[in-house]
Amino acid sequence: MDRDHPMKAANRHPGRKPAGSADRSHGRKLVDDIDGLDARPILRPDLKIGVVLWPEFPLMSLAGLVEALRHAADFGDNSQRRRCDWTIMAHDPSLSVRSSAGVTVRPDRSYQDPADFDYVAVIGGLLRSLSSAPEGARAYLRRAAEAGVPVIGICTGSFILAEEGLLDGRRACLHAYHLEEFRESFPHVRAEANLDYIDDGDVLTCAGGISIISLASELIRRHCGPDRATKTIHQMSVANRADATPLTVTQALGYTRVADPRLRRAVLLIEQSLVRPISPQWLADQVHVSRRQLSRLFAEEFGQSPGAFIRTTRLRYGRWLLQNSSESVTEIALRLGFSDCAHFIRTFRQEFDTTPGAVREARARSDKVMA
C-alpha cells in the first residue's frame, strides 16, 4: 500500500515539479512584484482604524476588515503592521466580547483618542443586542464624530449611528434583511440595500458580510495606494467572477512585467478591474501621472493607448472565459461591460479575427476528443 503514498510517489520523479507548483510560484512572484512597487521607509502606518464591537457582532465583518488590513500592512506574508494598523477597543479591555457565533474576542485596549485614527468603526450585533450598548461606546462614537474623525457603521452598526443622530439626512447602506426595519425606525435616513458600502464623507456605512472587503480595499487604496489594495484583493482570493480566483485571471491575461513602476501599477489595476468600468483618466489619477504621460507610457511599452489596452485585456479575459467557463456569450459580454452581445461579438472579431461562437465550438470539439 505504501506505493500509493503521495509523498513517495512524488519522490519517484525528482525532476518533475509537483502539481500546482507553477501556480504557487506565479502567485508568490505577483505579490513580490506588488511589494516592490513601494520601497520607501515607513515611519508610521498610512491607515489606522479603531474598532468598537457590539455584543453578538458578526465574526465575518471583523475578520474581513482585519484580514484586509493585515495583507495590505506588510510585505510578503509576515503579519507585520507596517502600512496599516488596527485597534479593538472597549471600556474594560479585560472583558471579552461575544460574537453572534459564540466566539469571543478580547479587546486590545481601552478607548484611546479618536484623533489617533483615520477612521473609527463600529460593528453592530444582532438586533436584539443593539440596546445592550457596551459601556462608554456610544459616547466614544459621538466623540469621534465631533473630533472630525470619519465613523464607519458596519452591518447593524448603521442602526447605532442612526440612533446617535449621525445619519440624519444622509444615505445609509444596509443588508436587505435589515432594510425594512431600518426604514421604519429611521425614516429620515435614506436607506439603501444591494450595495457594498456608501461613503458619505465623514460617515460611511457597510452592509457587512463580504462587502466589508470591498470597503476595506477602497480605504486601503486611498491611504496606502492601489498597489496595497491590489495585494489585498489578490491575497484574499477575491474573484472577478464567482468561480475564478484572481490568480487564474492573471494567468489568463498573462501578467505583464515592465520596468516602469507606474505602468506596472496601471496594468495591475486594469487586471483587477475587469468587470467594472474604468477610464484612462481614472487610471492616470491612480498612478499619479497626467493622462498624456500615461498614453505615452502605454504607447512605448505596448504600442496601444490606455483605452485600447483596457479593451484588449477584457477581450483576452473574455476569450479565456469562453474556453474555460460555462457562461453564455451574452453573459460574458454583459459581465465585461459591453452594451450588448452584438457589440461584444463585433469587437471580438476585430481583435482575434474569429467569433466567440467559433471559440466556444472549438472548445466543444476539443472536449469531445478528450472524452
Rank of each mutant, 00 (worst) to 15 (best):
E361Y: 08
P14R: 04
R265D: 11
I152M: 13
G76C: 11
R264W: 02
R363M: 06
T245K: 02
S211T: 12
Q272A: 14
D285C: 04
L336D: 04
E180W: 03
H175K: 11
D227W: 02
T256G: 00
D353C: 09
P356T: 07
Y140G: 04
E331I: 00
L274Y: 00
A144G: 06
V238R: 04
L47V: 09
I160M: 04
P18F: 05
G208I: 03
R81L: 14
G303T: 10
R264C: 13
D196A: 15
R12K: 14
V203Y: 02
V258Q: 06
L322T: 01
T245C: 07
Y119P: 08
R311S: 14
G50R: 01
V369K: 06
V103F: 05
L43Y: 05
A101S: 15
A9D: 11
F302M: 07
D33A: 12
T330P: 02
D113C: 12
R3N: 10
S237N: 13
R3Y: 12
F302T: 02
R262G: 13
R170F: 07
V329Q: 05
L167D: 08
P14Y: 07
P107N: 08
G15T: 09
S305C: 07
E180Q: 14
L62H: 08
A90N: 03
D353E: 14
F352R: 00
V289F: 08
F352H: 04
R257I: 12
D285V: 04
A242K: 10
R171G: 14
I210M: 10
F57R: 04
P134H: 02
A308E: 11
G307C: 02
L130Q: 03
Y317I: 04
K8W: 10
W282H: 12
S366W: 05
A176L: 12
E271K: 00
M370N: 12
G357C: 04
L204D: 02
D32A: 15
A342W: 01
P306D: 05
P261C: 10
R228Y: 07
I270H: 03
V105K: 03
A139C: 07
E67M: 15
A284M: 04
L215W: 00
P55E: 05
G20Y: 10
Q112C: 13
R138A: 13
R106W: 02
S100C: 13
R16G: 05
Q235N: 15
A101T: 14
A72K: 01
K17Y: 09
A172S: 15
